[in-house]
Amino acid sequence: MRTSLVLAPTLLALALHSAVALAQNKSAAQKPVLKGVTSAETYPYNFQKDGQVQGLAYDVTKTLVERAGYQLQVDIVPWPRALQLAQTEGGTMIFSVARTAARERIYHWIGPITTSEVWLYKLSSRADIQITELRDVNPYLIGDIAGNSTLSLIKSLGYRVDTAPSNISNCNKFKIGRVDLIPFDPNGVDTFLQTCGIDPRQVEKVLHLPRDTALYIGLSKNTPADLVTQLQQEFTAMTKDQTLQKIVLRWKQTQMNTKK
């Protein structure tokens, strides 16, 4: 009888613990899923490291989706494919995407998350590349990513451009001199170069291009209107309660530590 009296509360506690855990897992499993698409190489906004999606825009999107009562399922795909999927599949979110005139009618927009600058970079060893103003870029070949929003800017300035399917392949061409310059956001260039196998000290910032833009979460036009409204309202709430600003600040501090 003594053994029974001792075990009964323990067994009851274990049963209750199991029931709570099961209920929590069931609750999580019952949350509807929203699909997100992004690329693996857009530093520091969205990228893949150690098999995990990371980045400022990823953290904002995940927080937004969870606050709205959903789960976020992210697919890492080449950027042109991500743009296509977010155009055609209802309920699909793409992040982070520049809100350009050409894209304005393609997506519903949530944001802005943050802002991005565009600078041209060269290898420090390329003493033959001398640039002080926009017209000086004309003799050189710029490497960029297919589907990137900077392509229209580069072409509008009359520059020659060679496209690659990914940032890594573009960087490989840059390393061996197949392209002279690459455009990149200073916020993430150091992390990107390290991933690409280049010491950031071997690369030089050359020229600021005349287009700074806000970055957004895009939603397919096939997305139900009530879901779009819900997410937009939740994003507004994240801004008001400083959740967005805290995420941005955390990533800015991370980038500062990376440069040390």
Rank of each mutant, 00 (worst) to 15 (best):
P80Q: 11
R81H: 08
L83E: 10
Q84Y: 10
L85K: 14
Q87R: 15
Q87I: 04
T88K: 14
T88Y: 07
G90M: 13
T92V: 15
M93C: 07
F95A: 01
F95V: 11
T100R: 14
T100E: 10
A101D: 11
R105H: 12
H108G: 04
H108W: 13
W109E: 06
T114W: 10
T115Y: 13
E117N: 12
W119T: 03
L120R: 06
S124R: 15
R126Y: 05
A127E: 11
A127Q: 13
A127R: 15
I131A: 01
T132N: 11
L134T: 07
R135A: 08
V137L: 06
L141D: 02
D144G: 14
D144Y: 06
D144H: 11
I145M: 09
I145L: 14
G147C: 08
S149D: 07
T150W: 05
L151T: 03
S152E: 13
L153F: 05
K155W: 05
S156V: 01
G158R: 14
Y159R: 01
D162T: 07
D162Q: 14
A164W: 00
P165C: 13
P165G: 13
S166I: 03
S169Y: 00
S169W: 00
S169H: 03
C171T: 12
N172R: 15
N172I: 03
F174G: 06
K175L: 05
I176K: 13
G177F: 08
R178L: 09
R178H: 05
R178C: 04
V179Y: 02
D180P: 09
D180F: 06
L181H: 03
I182A: 02
F184H: 13
F184A: 13
P186S: 09
P186L: 13
G188H: 10
V189L: 12
